[in-house]
Every structure is written in structure tokens, then in C-alpha cells.
Design a protein around this nucleic acid. Structure first.
Length: 271
DNA sequence: AGCACA
């Protein structure tokens, strides 16, 4: 009967990403502590709060970090996406904008970070999410078995469905109505980057791009004073992600505004 | 708006 009592956050018609102040973090090792997440984000400008969520699914752990505005959230995303979180097991952070902002439980009692633990307790049976999991009953004790499962898949592992069931588990309409802002250029795993400053160096741009999974090779061509770059990625999806995240973003060498990124017209040749 | 390298 309460199926219709959707939260207003999920009803925003356009899901305008520029309103999102919360980051969705995946790729975390399953022994991550909320304190670690807090320490990861607390220094970032505009940070407000974070929460760690142990999902019921395969002991996966995700986190949400909320900032005072969209811009600072994006800045933290840029700074931390793709970094190795645990060099020991190679886990790499994948950070994207959350589907909805975390609603902060106001008032006393809510600390700087929050933990939500939905892992199946051995003593208690799962009382929700019944039905849509096909997983067989695996023992709690074998949790170490999935230590490598999230790494080899990289970005593809991130089912974005986990992004919208946080805090209350309700999943609203999750059609990804993302427009492909590229007009006419077919997706390509190589990106074309223009509107770079005259002093932009290959190193500077490479330092930014190499933080993202799948980054392969960068080449800069000086097109008569206005440099352009070609950045090659392993997969089209990874190139797409970088294009969307870095679109219009500034480098320290930028003088004509943010980078303009499109799919390249042809894939970078292998050498 | 501007797309190279082989």
C-alpha cells in the first residue's frame, strides 16, 4: 500500500546531475571500515558526511560521500576516482555521482559517518530483498573468496543499481535517460580532446587521464598553436565515462575554458 | 569548431 509513497528525490523529472552532491563509491575491499572512508574524504573541500553500506549482495561494500555542492563533489570525484585503495589486493576506487543525494539524518546521534550493514546475519534470515537473487547459499566464512572478483572486472562490475537503493532500498524507475551529447560521432574507445591551452603538456593531461580505469595511451598534436590530444582506452565504455566526467573540466594550463572532449573519428592505431 | 599516428 505504500508503493506509491515514493520519495520526492526520486521523482525529479530530469535527474539533473548538476544537483547531485553525493558520490557513489564502489570497488572497495570487503573489509573496509567506515573510518577509512571518512578519512578518505574528510580532507576534500566541501565534504559534509559519508556513509558506508554493506550490501546484502555478495558482501559488496559501497560508500556514499556527500558534499556541500555539486562542484566540490565533482572535484573529489576527479581527485579520487581510479586510485588504488588497497595496494595489497589491488582494489581500485570507482567513483561516480550517486543517483540521488544522501539525506542526512539531522539531529544529534548522527556522527560524521554512518554505517549501514545489510549483510546477512548468520542468526537472522533475510527479511527483505526476497526473490531477486539467484545466488546460492554461500557460507559466511568464505567471504575471502571474492577478494579478487571486483578487480578483474573493473568498471564493468559496477552495477549502477546499487546506487539508487541506498538508504531505503527502494528502487525507483532506473531508466538511464542519458543523452549521448555527441552529435553524430559514433562511440570510439579513443577520445579527441580539444580546447587545450597552448602550454598544455602531455604529462599534465596524462596525469589526469591515468587516474581512470582503462586508460591506455595519450598523444598530443600541436595543431598550429592549439594543441589537441588523443586518448586511447581499452573499452568504449571507459572512454565514455572519462568523456562525461572530464567534459569541460579545466587543467592548470587551460586558458580558453574547459577541455572539449569527443569521441575520436578513428581509433588510435596500435603500435 | 579544430581529428593524428600508421
Amino acid at each position: 500500500m505504500d508503493h506509491l509513497s515514493y520519495d520526492p528525490y526520486y521523482l525529479q523529472p530530469d535527474t539533473d546531475r548538476s544537483l547531485i552532491k553525493t558520490l557513489f563509491v564502489s570497488g572497495l575491499p570487503d573489509d573496509v571500515k567506515a573510518r577509512e572512508i571518512h578519512n578518505l574524504f574528510r580532507r576534500r573541500p566541501g565534504f559534509e558526511s559519508c556513509q558506508l553500506k554493506y550490501t546484502g549482495r555478495g558482501n559488496q561494500v559501497v560508500a556514499f560521500a556527500t558534499f556541500c555542492n555539486h562542484q566540490s563533489a565533482i572535484a573529489a570525484l576527479h581527485a579520487l576516482n581510479g586510485v588504488k585503495f588497497d595496494p595489497q589486493n589491488g582494489s581500485v576506487l570507482h567513483i561516480e555521482l550517486a543517483r540521488s543525494n544522501s539525506r542526512r539524518k539531522s539531529g544529534p546521534g548522527s556522527g560524521p559517518y554512518v554505517v549501514i550493514d545489510k549483510r546477512t546475519k548468520a542468526s537472522e534470515n533475510a527479511q527483505e530483498t526476497s526473490g531477486d537473487d539467484e545466488e546460492s547459499e554461500t557460507d559466511e566464512a568464505s567471504s575471502a573468496a571474492d577478494a579478487d572478483s571486483d578487480i578483474k572486472d573493473g568498471i564493468q562490475t559496477t552495477k549502477s543499481e546499487t546506487a539508487d537503493d541506498h538508504e531505503d532500498g527502494k528502487v525507483a524507475g532506473n531508466e538511464r535517460s542519458e543523452k549521448t551529447a555527441d552529435e553524430g560521432i559514433p562511440p570510439c574507445s579513443t577520445l579527441f580532446i580539444a580546447n587545450l591551452g597552448p602550454n598544455c603538456t602531455e604529462d599534465e593531461l596524462k596525469q589526469v587521464l591515468s587516474q581512470y580505469p582503462g586508460f591506455n595511451v595519450l598523444k598530443i598534436r600541436n595543431r598550429g598553436g592549439m594543441p589537441v590530444a588523443f586518448a586511447d582506452f581499452e573499452e568504449v565504455e571507459q572512454a565514455t565515462e572519462v568523456m562525461e566526467v572530464l567534459q569541460s573540466s579545466l587543467l592548470s594550463s587551460s586558458d580558453r575554458g574547459g577541455m572539449h572532449i569527443e569521441y575520436a573519428r578513428s581509433k588510435m592505431r596500435k603500435h
